[in-house]
């Protein structure tokens, strides 16, 4: 890939912080249906802006049906109607070659897939083709991207599997012959064999046991550090975020409500939703009563006016029912969308 705008050496010294790999600005993606004259619109991704730096694991947390998966699909450019991008942009920057996902041709999008942008999927049983051996899956996914003759390609894969503590004989196994943890490691190997700059991981450990989960997470982190890629890591399990991610974005009802370094968010959550999530985490050795969040997640087809969290929010004020809070900086590296935080406590 040719570098279109490679920075001069002087620039790099002046700017130690490298360009972000991914910049999402004001992204809106709605599910729009028009049947029998009835127009229905589900605002699953509503005005989301974020950036992900090189060599960083960015965590995305939120409950089911808050739009996490829609956001990932939109970022990967893998959308089809009724999901439409209504506004905003998704821009990748792979080694000085910028690419605006929704302003470029399908060919340009295909060229980055798997080579530069790959995806670790959720259910490893349904990702791997059950009637093909693992070797065939690797050939299907990665052969055309690596561009080596078959014997060398297989050698590359075997060497890569070794990094994930898998032996070469898994290549000849069918998916059902592998345990859940091994299958998930195979999908991680599939996603990382091309050494992509950007990896999207969608709940990769949710279906695993605690013992296996810890090992798989350690491997994800190890391989990410080794190939130096950035990662968007999505899960609703906050304990995983605490152990893995560098920065964390909390999503609620199609919007990001708080963002910042993971350790800082865990130390002092600002948004009331985040605070509730973190304070309700059960810990071994702590028997103090924990309160879950009351109420129901909003229906994204008819979201409540104003701040979408206000019906469940303990700090709700008048303005929350009328206006939608924007993401505003609040402390170093942190942003939060809440009037109670950015305009002081309610009187």
């Amino acid at each position: 890939m040719t570098a279109i705008a490679s920075p001069a050496p002087g620039d790099v010294i002046a700017k130690p912080q490298r360009e972000p790999v991914l910049v999402v600005s004001d992204l809106r993606a709605y599910y729009q249906t028009h049947y029998f004259g009835i127009v229905r619109e589900v605002r699953a991704v509503d005005d989301i802006s974020l950036h992900i730096n090189p060599d960083e694991i960015y965590g995305l947390a939120g409950e089911s049906s808050c739009g996490k998966t829609t956001l990932i699909k939109t970022i990967a450019g893998a959308i089809q109607p009724p999901l439409n991008v209504v506004g905003g942009s998704v821009r990748f920057n792979f080694g000085g070659a910028p690419l605006d996902v929704y302003a470029s041709t399908p060919q340009a999008r295909n060229a980055i897939r798997w080579r530069h942008l790959s995806y670790i999927m959720q259910g490893s049983m349904s990702v791997l083709n059950p009637v093909r051996r693992v070797r065939q899956s690797f050939i299907d996914f990665a052969f055309r991207h690596i561009g080596q003759p078959m014997p060398q390609f297989i050698d590359t894969i075997v060497a890569h599997l070794e990094r994930l503590h898998l032996q070469a004989n898994v290549l000849d196994a069918y998916p059902h012959e592998l345990s859940g943890g091994m299958r998930q490691r195979v999908t991680i190997a599939l996603a990382t064999v091309c050494r992509p700059e950007f990896i999207i991981a969608d709940e990769p450990t949710t279906a695993l046991d605690v013992v296996v989960q810890k090992g798989v997470l350690a491997m994800i982190r190890g391989i990410q550090r080794e190939i130096g890629s950035s990662m968007l890591f999505v899960t609703h399990d906050l304990a995983v975020h605490a152990n893995l991610t560098d920065r964390l974005g909390i999503m609620y009802a199609g919007r990001i409500v708080e963002e910042g370094p993971t350790a800082e968010i865990f130390r002092a959550p600002k948004h009331p939703y985040t605070a509730n999530l973190i304070h309700s985490l059960p810990r071994i050795g702590d028997t103090a009563p924990k309160k879950g969040l009351d109420g129901v997640p909003p229906n994204l087809a008819e979201p409540p006016p104003g701040c979408r969290f206000h019906p469940r929010c303990p700090l709700a004020m008048d303005i929350c029912r009328r206006e939608n809070p924007a993401m505003e900086p609040s402390g170093p590296g942190r942003r939060v969308a809440c009037f109670a935080v950015t305009r002081g406590e309610p009187s």
Binding site: N169, V216, A239, L244
Partner: peptide, 23 residues
């Protein structure tokens, strides 16, 4: 193996050799 929410982003080395068989 329980991930503590109070961790500082540090994971231990994986220990697959002891917990899982090859196939």
């Amino acid at each position: 193996s329980v991930l503590s929410p109070d961790a500082k982003g540090e994971l231990l080395e994986p220990q697959f050799s002891t917990t899982e068989r090859d196939l």
